[in-house]
Nucleic acid binder design. Sequence first.
DNA 1: GCTTGACCTCAAGTTATGTTTAGGTTTTAA
DNA 2: TTAAAACCTAAACATAACTTGAGGTCAAGC
Lengths: 149, 149
Amino acid sequence: MVVNNKQQMSVGQVAKRCGVAVSALHFYETKGLIKSWRNAGNQRRYQREVLRRVAVIKVAQRLGIPLADIGAALQALPEERTPTAADWNKISDIWRSELDQRIIKLTQLRDQLDGCIGCGCLSLKMCPLRNPGDELAEQGTGPRLLDPD
Amino acid sequence: MVVNNKQQMSVGQVAKRCGVAVSALHFYETKGLIKSWRNAGNQRRYQREVLRRVAVIKVAQRLGIPLADIGAALQALPEERTPTAADWNKISDIWRSELDQRIIKLTQLRDQLDGCIGCGCLSLKMCPLRNPGDELAEQGTGPRLLDPD
DNA sequence: GCTTGACCTCAAGTTATGTTTAGGTTTTAA
DNA sequence: TTAAAACCTAAACATAACTTGAGGTCAAGC
């Protein structure tokens, strides 16, 4: 293998360094999450910056964020220069508060779980566990559920 | 519509009462999550108990539990008698503690997010965000990642 | 200079969780 | 009794996030 240019990496090198499959990198590229250019033989070449991008993608996925949303967030990064810590932090700030929300929701759910499942209240219109946004009969479909369980 | 037998419901009735589509009930049946018998004209008939089963399925889905796991949990319910509150609570106890775990993990993740994404530590082998189970280089694939980012 | 490993593209396959469509039967209500 | 509503099955479609396979090219080392 030729001594690394230090500024360009092949897809296999990136895959190994990031712990993802080559096919995943291809895939991320089709989705616009990462970029590459081609060498004379039509093979992908990457800047080192791609390593951080992929790392962030994988972390975001652990947070449960869909790829499309991750891609949208990455759009906010500057194209013209290498993103700084501050650039990345803008993104992580948003994700952290989303995570906060999710934790709060799950905690509420957990607390409601005590008792609700075993008890008789699992009705669509009454039970907090079944009624996510506390929407009280706003489907306009008229009076169904006249005889809740 | 014929006066309801009170003990058997059609698929449409169950769908309406549970707030799910008829196709979803068909689907749950193919997955063994719910059961029905057929009338003379080959149409599905359900016991009232199915209403609670579907309610529990939907709640579990809000908890993020995959259908296959929900089905496995429901297998624990008694076949010979109508499940009691105690039967259901056995299941919800398990799910509650799983939820506890998930909340803890997410909270850790959130706390690590502060700083980690923007900083330089997002390497596969060092960063807690990238190293889910704190597995330290145990792939046995030999020394890769000699030059972490 | 040739073999082998790495790479290329494009299409199809995979899993989860259903929905939609098509073509046909049953039930219900007027 | 007849038209509409509800039901039936089987297969195809949908989305996410990739992987696998087929068929062919490029690059690196002996």
